[in-house]
Design a protein around this nucleic acid. Structure first.
Lengths: 136, 136
DNA sequence: AAAACTGTTATACTGTGTGTATAACATATG
DNA sequence: CATATGTTATACACACAGTATAACAGTTTT
């Protein structure tokens, strides 16, 4: 089991931080970063995340806020929580359900782009650019 | 100037409704639907939206909530507000800025999909499917 | 001119979500 | 035993969402 300390910028390690000026909720920021970490393989199946107390102190927020993020990640099927081993990356892939969720999000995202004259071709290029860093 | 009454399902008319069980804020739901309406050309440049009071009564929410949606849409550059003519569709297309916003949203959306084994190819197909109803 | 409409602003209230703080519990590990 | 884990409970402050009532300054209609 690999252990990924937070706030470690060395090499391709995973690190987490909070943007205190963002309009996104802290726990949402954590969820998003961890999900992106999994997609980019900086977090891999079986990796252990920092404990709620440790991560809370490292990024400078409250323990319960981290706990909220972890609970949400578990509920969404990205990690597994254990009283002995802490939080472990364990993705449950319900592809069909994920496709529906993605479509619902893309409907609004693409509509905004279309109104602003972003072409279909430009979107495809953007997808390829992002997927270049994600697992195929 | 076309006038597009809300809650009119006839043909390809624009209509708006609120999902009271959604976790999305009412004013966000209105914004999203209007933006999708513009993208699908059910709302066109120069079209008048219902007045804040009228729309509020039609969809069953408060006037200020509609006003909040309209103010946000103006701020984001989708409509123009006038004391004499009401709310008019008028899109300000800052393509470069829109690309940055879209990329930021896609980073998270695609990461979720990638974790759930949605392939790059499937995303491209989804894009084409959605863009088939949007202006190129 | 009066009435009815437009967006806009102000105030006040309720409810909910976010984030923090302190504390305790059950369990696993050294 | 001491220390660590996730978990739960309670309480508090703050911001946001939504509603309610009211008024204002213009515009349009009658």
């Amino acid at each position: 089991m690999r252990y990924l300390p937070a706030l470690q910028r060395t090499g391709d390690r995973m690190y987490l931080e909070i943007d205190f000026n963002s309009d996104k909720a802290f726990y949402v920021q954590l969820c998003d970063q961890i999900i992106i970490g999994i997609a980019t393989s900086r977090l891999r199946e079986g990796d252990a995340l920092p404990s709620v107390r440790q991560l809370a102190e490292e990024v400078g927020i409250n323990m319960h806020t981290v706990n909220k993020a972890y609970s949400l990640l578990r509920q969404e099927g990205y990690i597994r929580l254990d009283r002995r081993s802490g939080a472990i990356v364990a993705v449950e892939a319900d592809t069909r359900k994920a496709m529906n969720e993605m479509k619902r999000e893309l409907l609004v995202t693409l509509a905004k782009g279309s109104c602003r004259n972003i072409t279909r071709k430009e979107v495809h290029e953007l997808i390829d650019e992002i997927y270049a860093e994600y697992g195929e």
